[in-house]
Design a protein around this nucleic acid. Structure first.
Length: 263
DNA sequence: ATGGTTGAACCTCAA
């Protein structure tokens, strides 16, 4: 039995955010980190600075947009780049691997669900299809009955408590019934929202718009999630949203979410 | 407040 910490963090450009990311890594010292929105190719990823802090890397990069990675103090194997279910999808929004921990293994995935832009955009049906592909893929992965964590930026707030003004935001992107229904279906496969398991009634957000002083005004959404398999949630010790990086100079618009598991 | 800001890369798009 040992404790491992697993975090998810949408950095909104790993190159622009490198100094903030390194400060946070040195402070929080997570064992495994799921990154989203690298906005660079794998060869441009600042591997040296991360590796010298003891992390192994699995990267699925893309120029300008998207890009996801897994940082792990444990060796990574069986790396899967790209979400199955649509061979024509060239966006780098998903990476999965198996981390070998002493005496066992944890399956981990970093997902960057499409934002969808607006409900009448053609990007919104792509978002809905992506959530359905996640459901199809994780139906299969959960049948393996492993310790597994699907984390990332889901661009989707599950419940009214997860948005700053549910009445105003109802039906808008990131809080539309069609996408919340699909996130609910994914959870209903047997995934547990770590933050909500630990804090049933707490309102805290993980993203705030850069515009109009969103953070200062508390205009946020909880859209970054750590979803745990049954075997993983059995060992869940804590889950927090760390707002400190959001308060720094030149922050990402997201805050990291961190959980500790006994495995 | 139908605006506002940020990042990458190009003079605009995605978020």
């Amino acid at each position: 039995m040992q404790s491992i910490s697993i975090a998810t963090f949408n950095v909104n450009s790993v190159k622009a955010r490198l100094s903030n990311l390194l400060v946070w890594l040195d402070e929080a010292k997570p064992d495994i980190v799921l990154l989203q929105e690298l906005k660079c190719m794998e060869e441009a990823f600042p591997a040296m600075e991360i590796e010298e802090r003891g992390y192994n890397l699995a990267i699925h990069g893309q120029k300008t947009y998207n890009g996801v990675a897994i940082l792990s103090k444990f060796p990574l194997d069986d790396i899967l780049r790209g979400l199955p279910g649509d061979d024509s999808d060239e966006q780098a929004r998903y990476i999965e691997a198996v981390a070998s921990i002493p005496g066992g293994a944890v399956r981990i995935a970093s997902a960057y669900v499409p934002n969808g832009q607006s409900v009448d955009s053609d990007k919104f049906p792509y978002k809905l299809r992506f959530l359905e592909r996640l459901q199809d893929h994780w139906r299969r992965q959960l049948s393996l009955h492993e310790i597994a964590v699907l984390g990332g930026d889901f661009n989707n707030a599950p419940d009214p408590i997860d948005v700053y003004d549910p009445a105003q935001l109802d039906g808008s992107v990131c809080y539309h019934p069609a996408e919340r229904e699909r996130l609910r279906a994914l959870l209903n496969l047997g995934l547990y929202d770590a933050f909500r398991v630990m804090h049933p009634d707490k309102q805290q957000f993980s993203w705030w718009d850069y515009r109009a002083n969103g953070y200062e005004r508390g205009h946020g959404l909880r859209i970054d999630h750590l979803l745990l398999s049954a075997m993983a949630v059995d060992g869940l010790q804590s889950c927090v949203i760390d707002e400190v990086p959001r308060q720094q100079e030149k922050p990402s618009d997201h805050a990291p979410v961190i959980c500790v598991l006994n495995v």
